[in-house]
Write a protein that binds this DNA or RNA. Structure first.
Length: 889
RNA sequence: AGGGAAUUAGCUCAGUUGGUAGAGCGCCACCCUUACAAGGUGGAUGUCGUCGGUUCGAGCCCGGCAUUCCCUACCA
């Protein structure tokens, strides 16, 4: 069983994942004596492919899920995919277009059938990509938002809300996407800054010879003007209020009204009012009972109200109207003007405010309880700062337009009676009118906003409205992990629906992570061409490396910049771990594990280094536990990284080498046992972060259970017997040894002594304890600093010597290297002077403080004592160094 | 306009209760030392944006300012 000297993720990941799946390790129990832990995966669009945002989002969830699974919880990670109304419909329409067909030609039923076929064929792609990343979801429970069960929930919710008067149909001004020929919600509108123009236009006053000058960015909407408005207190126009003006080009007469909405200082202080095509004007129109004149067709062209401009698209009509206005002398001037224009987040087209019959959810009564559960802390946001944003939004929430003029989605369960016009809303197909009994009923053509079904996801996936064991066990879920961009689309609406239909919140904690940006800090997007493909990166660097890169950088709700360079670094980390294992397995070749995995060595038999690594392992376990509990993933990842590389590899394995090469069988056996345990424990600790490599390693360990993924997660509280073998005191002693070795290496390095050249050293301990510790670790010091002779004795003559004082806790030693015949003395003088300078800086600072009566009077005793000690020691070290310097001549 | 966040080494960022600044990458020097050159050892680098306040003591707490970013809402 030879391991290659490079970790090759490609050989490992697919095989391991398949094995986990076959063994059913991801499965949740409907009912269990173990505490539940559940996470609902934000269902990605079936049309989608995995992007870096998913990679980050899923990695976080997988870490939590694996950590809890190993900690003995009954874990459910509920996966699924979203039908994504518009996105999916567009994909299929594009396909049809290639065949020269349209969905209208196909007809609704055939089109929907065709879309299902597309979903069956391609919809699984993103799921496969999720598996590449290592997502340990309970795949057998995977749902799709158009599944029969989920659809049933959707219909029930719709009907219930309708019966409660919380869903209504109404003629309203809504955001209309001409490209989709559908309504979209406020949230689906992106405001972009556009450099446009402000046109000043004359509206002649009826029965007078003057005119009013109106400023507008959208001259074409004047065809739909039903008034002009001035501020009620604007002196300039007092006499005109109540009079009429004539609409240029059409000659239609409209009133001059007064409304406080008008800003006297902007433009001319006169506003044209187009209630059917502007949200503010709509409100003004309602206040003044103005006619609402719709001038647009569904595709964004002008309708018959447009007169000679009929059938022209908005942009074209605008140009023609401007030409005509100019020709007839109505256009006063044109100013450059930048303003915000709404764009459809799906198609990018300019959104038109459009008067149309739509279905709405009345939000105010539903939002109130959803606000309270956050205010009261029943649901907490992590990081907490999002609470404010959430509450702010809930305060200004408007009714939610839920109907879409699409074919792909949940069709609205409402039937209109041809005879009496009554609307029958029903979970089952309505065969007759609920009022007059007529059989002439037709179902509403529209489908529901995709987010409507998403809002029910936390319980619709668990079998609701049926009363299932699954819901009893796992609802509410424990934590929801998502980006801030869908707090309002999704999180808020899930809270609302959960409270309304389950009488309980859908989750306890909302963990919000940031966005992934490129190395320059730009948002990753396909159109910018800077989007990294996670699947490609997994191919090249491995899923573990990618996961670790994301985890190491994720800081509470802040965006993170992704760079391949960093990914490479963590790929190297995987390799480091792999090679450490390779070494350890070599050292454990003749290791005979006891049948009892819990068998521990005797404390008296294990080495200093063994005790030290166990102490450090305990520290790591405490750090990881703390970090994971508080969602500090980067802290966790960094602690793990540092332990593996800088504690385990750099020091422990080096300390242990002489033992394995030595003659003491007892010592060797004890160290083997410790090494085997430490390695086992390390991969268990790292598994949630880097599941593949750790499972692969685990399967090769002499000490192991059946599968790492279901082994227990180590904490300082469980399996205490191993960690109890470490002693903090001994660990400090090993830290002294490390410092001594570092001092010797420093002397070598700075004096340019060749790594291969052995040198002699004198260690002058300044107390008995240090003397003993040095004596017992002499071999390690000699090996790791490449010494020929190592004397532990008093300092003696310092002539022609490099000197470095070392101190850890109360232990102190001067590290001395005779340099006779070795090096340029000047180099060593420089080195010593540098150290003295550093110490001097300390001394000046501390002496200043000690001389300050205020400090002495107010600072706590231990701080004063610490300063005092530090000062004395620094002074002592300086005098040693100065003596050495003097002897160097 | 309102709200939020950020400003620490060349770059990306940690720094959880105030007690003399850390990591990774990059950089410099030396080394293919039998786990790993995707490696080892050593080294250099910071008036912690700015001004003031609280404190014996501030990267951290408070206030002002500057710059940058994000969100929400909009001026026709």
């Amino acid at each position: 069983m030879e391991l290659s000297d490079r970790y090759n993720s490609k050989d490992v990941e697919g095989r391991i994942y398949q094995w986990w799946t076959e063994r059913g390790f991801f499965k949740a129990q409907d009912k269990s004596t173990h505490s539940p832990f559940s996470v609902i995966l934000p269902p990605p669009n079936v049309t989608g492919s995995l992007h870096m945002g998913h990679a980050l989002n899923h990695t976080v969830q997988d870490v939590l899920v694996r950590w809890k699974r190993m900690s003995g919880f009954n874990v459910l990670w509920m996966p699924g995919t979203d039908h994504a109304g518009i996105a999916t419909q567009s994909v299929v329409e594009r396909e049809l277009k290639k065949e020269g067909k349209t969905r209208q030609e196909l007809g609704r039923n055939n089109f929907v059938e065709r879309t299902w076929q597309w979903k069956e064929q391609y919809g699984g792609r993103i799921v496969e990509q999720m598996k590449r990343l290592g997502d340990s979801c309970d795949w057998d429970r995977a749902c799709f938002t158009l599944d029969e069960g989920v659809s049933k929930a959707v219909r029930k919710v719709f009907v219930d809300l309708y019966n409660k008067g919380l869903i209504y149909k109404g003629l309203r001004l809504i955001n209309w996407s001409p490209a989709l020929e559908s309504a979209i919600s406020d949230l689906e509108v992106d405001h972009k800054e556009i450099k446009g123009s402000l046109y000043h236009i004359r509206y002649p006053i009826v029965g007078g010879d003057g005119h009013l000058e109106v400023a507008t960015t959208r001259p074409e909407t004047m065809l739909g003007d039903t008034a002009v408005a001035v501020h009620p207190e604007d002196e300039r126009y007092q006499t005109l209020i109540g009079k009429e003006v004539e609409l240029p080009l059409s000659g239609r007469k409209i009133p001059v009204i007064a409304d406080a909405y008008v800003d006297k200082t902007f433009g001319s202080g006169v506003v044209k009012i187009t209630p059917a095509h502007d949200f503010n004007d709509y409100e003004v129109g309602k206040r003044h009972d103005l006619p609402m004149l719709n001038i647009l067709n569904k595709d964004g062209s002008l309708n018959e109200q447009g007169g000679v401009y009929k059938n022209l698209k908005v942009q074209e009509a605008r140009k023609r109207i401007l030409v005509d206005l100019e020709a007839k002398g109505f256009l006063v001037k044109t100013e450059a003007h930048t303003h915000q224009v709404g764009h459809c987040s799906r198609t990018g087209c300019v959104v038109e405010p459009f008067l149309s019959e739509q279905w709405f959810v009345k939000m105010a009564p539903l939002a109130a309880p959803a606000k309270r559960v956050v205010e009261s802390g029943t649901i907490t946001f992590e990081p907490e700062s999002w609470t404010k944003t959430y509450l702010h939004w809930m305060n200004i929430i408007e009714d939610w337009c839920i109907s879409r003029q699409l074919w792909w989605g949940h069709r609205i369960p409402a039937w209109t009676c041809r005879d009496c016009g009554h609307i029958t809303v029903s979970e089952m197909e309505a065969k007759s009118c609920g009022k007059c009994g007529s059989a002439q009923v037709v179902q509403d053509e529209d489908v529901l906003d995709t987010w409507f079904s998403s809002a029910l996801w936390p319980f619709s996936t668990m079998g609701w409205p049926a009363d299932t064991e699954l819901q009893k066990t796992f609802y509410p879920s424990t934590v929801l992990v998502t980006g801030f961009d869908i707090i309002f689309f999704w999180v808020a609406r899930m809270i609302i629906m959960g409270l309304e239909f389950k009488q309980d919140v859908p989750f306890r904690t909302v963990y919000i992570h940031g966005l992934i940006r490129d190395a320059q800090g730009k948002k990753m997007s396909k159109s910018l061409g800077n989007a990294e493909d996670p699947v490609q990166l997994i191919e090249e660097y491995g899923a573990d490396a990618l996961r670790f890169t994301l985890l190491a950088q994720i800081a509470a709700g802040r965006d993170l910049k992704f760079s391949v360079q960093r990914l490479e670094g963590y790929r190297n980390f995987m390799n480091k771990l792999w090679n450490a294992t390779r070494f350890a397995l070599g050292a454990l070749k003749d290791f005979e594990p006891s049948s009892d995995l819990n068998q521990m060595p005797n404390r008296s038999e294990i080495s200093y280094a063994d005790q030290w690594i166990l102490v450090k392992l305990g520290h790591l376990e405490r750090e990881l536990d703390e970090a994971l509990k508080t969602y500090r993933f980067s802290d966790a990842a960094n602690a793990a990284y540092s332990f593996v590389w800088h504690t385990f590899c750099d020091w422990y394995l080096e300390f242990v080498k002489p033992i394995f090469q030595g003659n003491s069988v007892t010592e060797k056996k004890a160290t083997q046992l410790v090494l085997a345990h430490v390695l086992n424990r390390t991969v268990r600790l790292l598994h949630p972060f880097i599941p593949f490599i750790t499972e692969e390693i685990y399967q090769k360990l002499p000490l192991r259970g059946e599968a790492l993924i279901v082994d227990t997660y180590p904490t300082v509280k469980v399996d205490k017997s191993l960690l109890a073998l470490g002693s903090e005191d001994v660990a400090e002693e090993v830290d002294l040894i490390r410092e001594v070795i570092t001092a010797l290496r420093n002397i070598r390095g700075e004096n340019r002594i060749k790594p291969g050249q052995k040198i002699n050293a004198r260690l002058a301990p300044l107390d008995d304890k240090t003397q003993k510790v040095l004596g017992e670790n002499k071999q390690a010091i000699m090996t790791m600093s490449r010494l020929e002779i190592c004397e532990i004795t008093e300092a003696g003559n310092l002539s022609k010597c490099a000197v470095q004082p070392v101190q850890v806790g109360t232990m102190k030693v001067d590290v001395i290297v005779p340099l006779e015949g070795l090096v340029d003395i000047e180099e060593e003088k420089k080195r010593i002077r540098k150290t003295i300078e550093k110490l001097h800086k300390d001394i000046v600072g501390i002496s200043g403080r000690m001389a300050d009566a205020n400090f002495m009077a107010n600072a706590p005793e231990d701080i004063v004592a610490q300063n005092k000690r530090q000062l004395e020691e620094s002074k002592a070290q300086v005098s040693t160094l100065e003596a050495a310097l003097a002897r160097l001549g």
